[in-house]
């Protein structure tokens, strides 16, 4: 049998160690001040195998060495996709020239039934020349989105065959080594985005 005193002492020791553990995990967070959400260590490094706008199979290796800004969407998207792509393209254009060359915007269409490589090409070229447009079999897209803890879903098509697609509204930022670094929320301002991208470009430069 344990006396009440024993139990109280153990209770206090356990509570103290819990508190210590919590404060430790609080201290270990990165001291850098990102405007975006810091996702270092939360997600695996960039990897995919998808079709580009010329119809060729490409992987993350093909853009290695660049800072990759990946966004999931679809070309019939009425609001968030054009807004985000425009914001990304403008933010990159406002960076110093050498930093601009470091940046690679990647648009992944999660609506392969409607978005052919040609359609994606004319869509991304509208925003900027250098954007990589990707899509693939739904299975490959599911695998990629699962890897980054996101998903997409389709609404029932209406009479004209139009349907909405739910998808991630965030931009996933990977550094030159392909490590997941930042998650840019849709509401993050242009200036805040430029500051983050500049800081990332200056790393190890």
């Amino acid at each position: 049998m344990f006396s009440a005193k024993h139990i109280t002492v153990r209770f206090l020791v356990l509570a103290a160690s819990l508190a210590a553990l919590l404060s430790l995990s609080g201290c270990s967070s990165d001291q850098e001040n990102w405007n975006a959400k810091d996702i270092s260590g939360l997600m695996p490094e960039l990897a995919y195998q998808l079709t580009d706008t010329s119809g060729d199979m490409v992987t993350a290796e093909d853009s290695a060495g660049n800072i990759r800004l990946m966004f999931f969407g679809f070309t019939s998207c009425p609001d968030i996709c054009p807004t985000t792509l425009q914001k990304l393209a403008q933010a990159v254009q406002k960076l110093p020239e050498d930093a601009q060359e470091d940046m690679q915007i990647i648009f992944v269409s999660v609506d392969p039934n409607r978005d052919t490589p040609e359609r994606i090409k004319s869509y991304v070229d509208f925003f900027s020349d250098g954007i990589i447009g990707l899509t693939g079999e739904e299975e490959n897209l599911r695998e990629l989105s699962k890897r980054y803890r996101t998903t997409f879903g389709y609404e029932e098509p209406d009479d004209k065959g139009n349907y909405a697609v739910s998808h991630s509204g965030a931009v996933y930022v990977f550094d030159r080594n392909g490590k997941a670094r930042l998650l840019v929320r849709p509401e993050q301002s242009m200036d805040a985005l430029i500051a983050d991208l500049t800081a990332l470009a200056n790393e190890g430069a």
């Binding site: 996101t150 998903t151 879903g153 609404e155 697609v165 739910s166 991630s168």
Partner: peptide
């Protein structure tokens, strides 16, 4: 909880 907005919902809701 905006994470569901950021990461996409299973269906549009």
């Amino acid at each position: 909880y905006d994470v569901y907005e950021v990461c996409g919902r299973a269906w549009p809701m």
